[in-house]
Computed example of a mutant assay.
Amino acid sequence: MPQTPTAKGRATRARIIEGAAEVLRERGVAFTTLDDIRGRTGTSKSQLFHYFPDGKDELLLAVAQFEADRVLEDQQPHLGRLDSWESWQQWRDAVVERYERQGDECALGALFLQVGRARPGARAIVAELMRQWQGQLAAGIRALQANGLVPSSALDVDRTAASLLAGVQGGVAIMMSTGDATHLKAALDTGIEHLRAMAGAPGTATTERNCP
């Protein structure tokens, strides 16, 4: 029977994953070896394989999960409290800032290219990330409805959340290819404007901004 990891063991594994993520971001997936990761994390070869018996691919999947979690964490606290137009605007700005800071290097995408997107583990990570992201957007729309800012019968909440997420992902893909965030901003602003139109609220997500 497999042993249940101790608190120390879980902390060590998390430290290895976080250290590996730092190295992979700095050097790139294709140019990072297990020796690089062991050097950064102060981990012996036997210790590394104790926590990741299948070697580099298993570690890369763990780092991919770490990076996927960061996608949502970087949008907090705004993504978790989309209950006003102001909070939607703050979320919009946080998303733009995150991806402008990331630039054309996507650690998560690079990891999936290395381990293979078709692998069940990789697909599960992406599917769960999108499920959670869309779920929080849908919760935000329902919060607007609960606060009387959007009529309850005005739109299909889950479909609207899916459309907004698809727009964000498309904008990010174009930004990574061109270095220009215009399409990402347009997708976010149009999605929020659509919600405001359902409410009949004056102004738009862009005109309320206090600075350009």
Rank of each mutant, 00 (worst) to 15 (best):
R38K: 14
R38Y: 03
G39M: 13
G39N: 12
G39L: 09
G39R: 13
G39Y: 01
R40W: 07
R40T: 08
R40F: 05
T41D: 06
T41P: 07
T41H: 12
T41C: 15
T41Y: 07
G42I: 07
G42P: 00
T43C: 01
T43L: 00
T43H: 00
S44D: 04
S44V: 01
K45V: 11
K45E: 11
K45F: 05
S46D: 06
S46W: 05
S46V: 15
S46F: 10
S46Y: 07
S46T: 13
Q47S: 14
L48A: 01
L48V: 10
L48M: 13
L48D: 06
L48K: 04
F49P: 01
F49H: 07
F49N: 03
F49C: 04
H50C: 02
H50L: 10
H50N: 06
Y51L: 10
Y51R: 11
Y51K: 03
F52G: 00
F52T: 03
F52W: 06
P53C: 12
P53T: 15
P53L: 13
P53K: 13
D54Y: 05
D54F: 03
D54N: 09
D54H: 10
G55M: 02
G55K: 04
G55C: 07
K56P: 00
K56E: 15
D57I: 04
D57F: 08
D57P: 03
D57C: 05
D57G: 08
D57H: 09
E58W: 14
E58Q: 15
E58M: 12
L60V: 13
L60R: 08
L61S: 09
A62R: 11
A62F: 13
A62P: 04
A62L: 12
V63H: 08
V63L: 11
V63D: 02
V63E: 11
A64K: 09
A64C: 03
A64F: 14
A64M: 10
A64H: 09
A64Y: 09
Q65P: 00
Q65L: 10
F66D: 07
F66L: 04
F66P: 02
F66M: 03
E67N: 01
E67K: 05
E67M: 06
E67P: 04
A68F: 10
A68V: 13
A68R: 02
A68C: 04
A68I: 12
D69R: 11
D69T: 13
R70I: 00
R70Q: 13
R70M: 02
R70G: 07
R70S: 05
R70T: 01
R70W: 02
V71D: 03
V71C: 03
L72E: 06
L72F: 07
L72Y: 06
L72D: 01
L72S: 09
E73V: 15
E73S: 07
E73Y: 06
D74H: 08
D74V: 02
Q75E: 10
Q75D: 14
Q75V: 00
Q75R: 04
Q75Y: 14
Q75I: 03
Q75S: 07
Q75P: 00
Q76E: 11
Q76M: 14
Q76I: 00
Q76R: 14
P77W: 15
P77Y: 13
P77G: 14
